[in-house]
Amino acid sequence: MKRDIILAGVGGQGILSIAAIIGYAALEQGLFLKQSEVHGMSQRGGDVQSNLRISDKGIASDLIPFGKADLIIAVEPLEALRYLPYLSHDGWVITSIRPFLNIPEYPDMEKVMEEVRKLPHYVALDADEIAKEVATAKAANIVILGAASPFLDMNYEKLEDAIRFTFRKKGDEVIAKNLEALKAGRKFADDHMNS
């Protein structure tokens, strides 16, 4: 088993919590893991990514080679496209379609979506909208995680456990909301896989 994942977003959007939840679930299953993160300057609203590698064998490089990522999980559509050189030919892109507009020259959204729709394998969803419906807007990243869950080669219950662990100090209500967000994302993916 091996999953090489690029997590992408804008500084402050919470991609590291997605990484932490998948990472916890992986460790609980006795898998090896390497996760490279971005700290520092880019966290001020710049583009950020994290390389998350999970395997049942030892992992060499902290960085995923170009063309080898099984998954790109993005909380922002333009950021999903930024890392396409890493995507393997049968890899999937899971992305939110909600743009983060903090640059003046953000490309035309329709054109961005056109590029997303050109991808061979993708799930694209308005994670903010879904999160607001079933939980709170804050849980958008967990909705994305739910949408990515069918592709992680991991037991869904293990992800639920990881969420319970991650939010254990925040109380039962927060845990319940995040589990709902996870479920809603999962359902969307199950209904909308494009191939």
């Binding site: 950021e79 903090n102 961005v112």
Partner: peptide, 20 residues
Amino acid sequence: EDTFGLPVPSLMVNRPPSLC
């Protein structure tokens, strides 16, 4: 041999860090 995924679409722009 080098490996490569898909090209970055030409509409891509940089997203430099900025003041909050």
